[in-house]
Amino acid sequence: MTRVGIVALSSVVPPVEFQIGVEFLRSQGLNVRVHPQVHSQHWLHAGRDEVRAAALMELATDPTIDVIWCARGGYGAAKLLPLLDRLTAEQGVPPPKLLVGYSDVTVIHEYVRNRWRWHTLHAAMPAAVNFSLLPGADWSATLAAVTRDRTIAWPWQNRPLHWVTAPPVEPIEAALIGGNLSLWQTLAGTPYAPPRRPHILFLEDLAEEFYRIDRMMTHLEQSGLLDACAAIVLGDFTDCDDEAQTCLAAGTDETAIKDPAKAPRQPLRPTYSMPDLFAEVFATIGARRLIPIATGLPVGHGPNFAPLPLGARYRLSADGTLALVKWDWQR
């Protein structure tokens, strides 16, 4: 039986939703141990930074735990990185395990992948209200991945992606890394930025306006984090929209500035759609940097929750198919 330890590395954990998620995991045949830290609260987080880092290290070094599953995302995981440096220096590198989670966990995925040589899985977390109601194919693949099944029906493996740039002339084979765009770009300029080795970059996000996505991609490019990028695959950008900007309507006289809220208004500029975002931001960067970019990977904050091994080797073909070549966690 796979032994799972649960920690909370980011925001405060909702107790009812979490308990439902834990019971669901147990009903699926997993041996689940919840670290007491999960129920802590300090400021915006599930306990003080030192408490959260110590809880992760405790489960990381526990020989009775195979998999560490984060309770939820939110905010605060990046604060733990220097503390994990110190704990690693004091206690040594923990033996390889699998870390499961996504969103704010992106920075921890990248940390344990590089510093501890762990396996990582971008997948749903048990404190989510819909965790026990995930689409069947998404949950079946998640459970199979966690329990190291030899055969896993990845929901994305037979769903060709859609190119927003010219497709690659030859298949691209490389490690796939990344996660949440907002978190990935915060690594730029820090000691925890990903090593500049050829890779396929996966990105997704939640509730970001288009100007912020544009700014984050500009930051990634200007910081050099796209220099070794062989391709980019985009997952769900859930509830990401353009802001509708208005201005005083043409013909409005100068008295309107005394009470502009009551004055007639008109659109300042067009309001753009998701295809516009892909064309203007991603396709432009791809063309400039000669990076093939595709959309449609059913991974992210919804409506799709397919699991995705990070750090594993994939092949991305001109017809848009993404195939897992090798994942060392899988038997």
Rank of each mutant, 00 (worst) to 15 (best):
T61C: 11
D85Q: 05
A46Q: 10
Q41I: 10
R48G: 13
R52E: 02
G73H: 07
T61L: 12
W43K: 15
A71Y: 08
T61N: 09
V34P: 07
H45Y: 15
P63C: 06
Y75P: 05
V38Y: 11
R72N: 14
D62Y: 01
G29D: 06
L30A: 05
R52M: 14
W69Q: 06
A46S: 15
A78T: 09
L59A: 08
V38K: 02
N31T: 04
A78I: 14
D62W: 01
R33C: 06
P63Q: 11
R33V: 06
S40T: 10
G73Y: 05
D49N: 13
R33M: 05
G73T: 05
R86I: 04
A60F: 04
G73I: 00
P36I: 12
V34Y: 07
A53I: 00
H39D: 11
D62Q: 07
H45K: 14
P82D: 00
T61R: 12
T64Y: 08
L44Y: 13
Q41R: 15
R33Q: 11
Q37A: 11
G74T: 08
V34M: 10
H35S: 14
A77Y: 02
V38E: 01
H45Q: 11
W43A: 15
V38F: 11
G76Y: 01
H42K: 14
Q37T: 07
L56T: 05
A53Q: 07
Q41P: 11
L80E: 06
R33W: 08
N31K: 04
R86K: 13
G76F: 00
D66S: 11
P36A: 10
V67W: 05
A60K: 03
E58S: 12
L84E: 00
I68L: 10
A55Y: 09
M57W: 03
L83K: 01
V51P: 00
H39G: 09
W43D: 15
A78E: 09
I65Q: 03
W69K: 03
V38I: 13
V67Q: 01
A54H: 06
M57D: 05
G76W: 03
P36G: 09
V38M: 07
L56N: 04
E58W: 09
P82W: 01
D85W: 05
N31V: 00
D62N: 15
P82S: 04
L59Q: 03
D66Q: 08
R33A: 06
A54Q: 12
D49A: 11
V32D: 08
R52Y: 15
K79V: 00
D62V: 10
R48C: 08
Q37F: 06
D85T: 00
G29R: 06
R72W: 13
Q41H: 15
T64W: 01
V67C: 01
D85V: 03
P82M: 02
I65W: 07
D49F: 08
